[in-house]
């Protein structure tokens, strides 16, 4: 082969000795394609940075409001290396995680109960349909009235906001369990409790995981909103404080770190989902 362009390396040659697992394409081809795509992605990001610097350079925006990307990167490094930013991130995660855990437990229990007890579902459906269109953040003032400012209120808001996706997808998951599985359980003389534990829950687990991933993003938004609004310690209040003190570079640094946090949270839950359902549609698409 004289010119090993990308196209000639490929496709699906029966004689190609080594393949990338699961694709049937040669390792060379997959590595090359990925390298080229990563380079393109980096170039795309570089264009965004260049645009940022251009806007700054041309003075379209007050340069004090738009610090140089280099300064922001340095502020990120300083802030994370034992700075206040690191502890703010830790505090946000520290309230986000238990809040989400509460939502996961309560949402899973509620979802299973609603799916298995149709009478209960019918009875409280009006309540659910009534609460559903109300954005949870609108209830922050109500929670402030009832619980006051503090960690307790923040945890409640995080859990309340993120319970819904867990609840509804668990319910859908349980309702979607193949009735033949249940019949198998009865034939094997499993008691109802064992049937739920050993058949319903494992079968509904992928749906639960998908709901939990949606919930994790919502929980983060609510955690930060509550922090901004009440001054509860965390990224939200940190961003507001540095902005009010005119520390613009620190503000931008914190925002980009928040983005990374959001990205990582999603990546972690995506990995959990993949582990739970390697065949699932999320695995194929993204």
């Amino acid at each position: 082969m004289q010119s090993p362009g990308l196209a000639t390396l490929d496709p699906l040659k029966p004689d190609a000795a080594r393949r990338w697992p699961g694709t049937g394409r040669s390792i060379q081809f997959v590595v090359m394609t990925r390298a080229v795509n990563s380079a393109k992605g980096a170039a795309g990001a570089a264009v965004v940075v260049a645009m940022w610097e251009t806007v700054r350079g041309l003075g379209l925006v007050d340069p004090r409001d738009l610090p140089s990307t280099f300064a922001i990167v340095r502020a990120v490094a300083d802030g994370l290396r034992g700075g206040e930013l690191a502890s703010a991130v830790a505090m946000t995660v520290g309230s986000w995680a238990p809040g989400l855990l509460l939502a996961a437990v309560a949402g899973a229990a509620g979802g299973v109960a609603l799916a298995l007890l149709p009478r209960l579902e019918i009875a409280i459906r009006p309540l659910l349909e009534f609460l559903r269109p109300i954005p949870s953040v609108a209830l922050i003032p109500v929670a402030l009235l009832v619980l006051g400012v503090g960690l307790q209120m923040q945890l409640f808001m995080i859990a309340f906001a993120s319970i819904w996706p867990v609840l509804f997808s668990t319910k859908t998951g349980v309702e979607g369990v193949d009735p033949r599985f249940m019949e198998t359980g009865r034939v094997l003389h499993l008691r109802p409790g064992a049937r739920i534990l050993r058949i319903v829950l494992p079968a509904a687990l992928p749906a639960f995981a998908t709901g939990l991933r949606t919930a994790s993003a919502i929980a983060l938004v609510v955690a930060i909103t509550v922090e901004m609004l009440t001054g509860q310690g965390g990224i939200g209040s940190y961003i507001e404080n540095v902005r009010l003190n005119g520390l613009v570079t620190e503000m931008w640094a914190a925002i980009f770190v928040t983005g990374v946090l959001g990205y990582l949270v999603n990546a972690v839950f995506m990995a959990i989902e993949r582990a739970l359902m390697p065949w699932g549609p999320e695995y194929r698409d993204r």
């Binding site: 795509n37 980096a42 930060i224």
Partner: peptide, 26 residues
Amino acid sequence: DPWVRPTLEYLRFIPAVAILPAALLL
């Protein structure tokens, strides 16, 4: 797609509340 996708994948996971102070500033 490969040029734009990584940047978008980063931007879309920034909790939108976090950009509110920046928008307020600008």
